[in-house]
Amino acid sequence: MSYEDYLTDRDVILTVAPTGGVHGKDANPNLPEQPDEIAEQVAACERLGAAIVHLHGRDEHGENDAGRLQAVNDAIRDRCDDIIIQNTTGGQSTFDARVQGIRTDPAPEMASLDMGPFNRGKHIITEHNRHNIDRLAAEMREKDIKPELECFNNGHLNEARRLVERGAIEEPYYVNLIFGHGTFTPPTPENVLNMVANLPENTEFNLLAVGRHQLPLTTLSVILGGHVRVGMEDNLYYRRGEPVEDNAQLVERTARIVDLLDCDLATPDEARERLGMN
């Protein structure tokens, strides 16, 4: 994917990440945490053009609980039309907790697959080792779940290539390039260009950037022929000092930018076709 792809007539896949596992309502009271409020916001995002929703589960206190993904999936299927469900298998919990993201009934069409560990706080390193990555990739393949390969830094592109070389994933590969603080790739245009230049062949890429970097770097992704992820998981402010009102506010702005750049947003079915999903 490249600038040349942008110049041709093409669709942009917009993923909304409404909740995540990092922030709580104490950081922004508009963050949806419970299944019904997540589904209500996602339905609004789907009407604005979101084709994929990336989901986390929370308990009644707003704490992470992968066991609640089933309820979130059910609520979204009730409220939404055709949006593609992508459950998380990421975060800092154990493998047994994270694998619940691909054991809902029915299974999600997509799931995230972290390509390696990252630091949290002062003492935490997430346990995304190769053994766990391979186990998740195998179960996703068995269940026909399309993995989104989460590359938190450029070393994780090597790990994505490792899966490609093992034949553990199917083309086209879908890589999510992540930019932000800490162990993530530093959020600069130069680093976006470098990451895109080092993608495996036959890869479609998505881009997420944390906080104030969400708007400029997702826009750059479109210009480089990529796809975009926005939402309150990654960004709680619409602009400096102005908290996001809801996820639709971020999706609407991105949809407007995509239109101004003379691209179209992919429908869920168009996204399935582009990503080689049955």
Partner: peptide, 16 residues
């Protein structure tokens, strides 16, 4: 108030 990720540590979940 504690973030969801830190709450895992507060509650000694997931081997924390």
């Amino acid at each position: 108030f504690v973030s969801p990720m830190r709450a895992d540590i507060c509650n000694d979940r997931h081997d924390f």
